[in-house]
């Protein structure tokens, strides 16, 4: 049975701009269920990253409501928001945001350290995550020694290692070539199917759009249109 993961009602986000305000999101209403592989699509300035940040509890709505995994983002304290991110959310960034001085193993291990897993559990879970992305031979390498595709695969492993309910990916293929992009997207698609993890992308990359099963087009801070792709059995 499908369960609601994200519920957004009349969401507005305003930022101070000069002496006035800039409204980035103008009354968004959206609902996402478990296991979706969806994307927020739109040009720069359409509000997709802002929406993703609010869903990721890195920002708060100005008005309206965003309920993520049962928690209303606007009402969470900083500690509660951190707890939500730590336990239930995974992030994949355009520029990978790996910890440069840590090895691949240590980067993937990081979320588990925060969750107080034992050393043996961490080792097992990191190995498993690196197997998903095909990087078991790079455990001791540091990010500066890896290619862009490899870095993004490490970022996926880091996002997935704790098996979160929701993964938020902001332009995950923007710095990758076509081959690497497809590899990354196939990996995420497989994880989505096998682990039933909800994936939500913010993108304007055609390659990513081609993989999405639900496409939400944003324009000037509003939902312009929505498309559902029928799954082939």
């Amino acid at each position: 049975m499908e369960k609601s993961v994200i519920s957004i009602r009349q969401l507005v986000k305003k930022f101070p701009a000069g002496k006035g305000e800039f409204t980035a999101l103008k009354g968004i209403d959206l609902e996402f269920n478990t296991g979706e592989f969806a994307g927020l699509i739109g040009p720069s300035g359409s509000g997709k990253t802002t929406l993703l940040n609010i869903i990721g509890s890195l920002d708060v709505p100005s008005t309206g409501e965003a309920v993520v995994l049962g928690s209303s983002i606007g009402e969470l304290s900083a500690r509660e928001a951190a707890r939500l991110r730590k336990h239930s959310l995974g992030f994949i960034f355009q520029s990978y945001n790996l910890l440069a001085v840590h090895t691949v193993f240590e980067n993937v291990e990081f979320p588990l350290l925060l969750l107080d897993y034992s050393a043996s559990e961490r080792k097992k879970m990191v190995q498993e995550a690196l197997e998903w992305v095909g990087l078991t031979d790079k455990t001791d390498s540091r990010p500066p020694k890896l290619s862009g595709g490899e870095c993004q695969r490490v970022a996926i492993a880091r996002a997935m290692v704790k098996k979160p309910s929701l993964v938020l990916a902001d332009e995950p293929t923007a710095n990758l070539d076509a081959d690497n992009s497809h590899h990354i997207l196939k990996t995420m698609e497989t994880l989505n199917r096998e682990l039933n993890t909800t994936f939500l992308f913010a993108t304007h990359d055609e390659k990513v759009i081609g993989y999405l099963r639900r496409k939400i087009f944003l324009k000037d801070g509003r939902v312009d249109k929505e498309e559902w792709v029928k799954q082939t059995p």
Binding site: G56, R79, A82, R83, R85, S95, N97, L99, F110, P111
Partner: peptide
Amino acid sequence: QKEIGTYIALGYTRGQ
């Protein structure tokens, strides 16, 4: 800065 942002995204509070 990016690293600090990453720590927060991964579940650290700013105080931590």
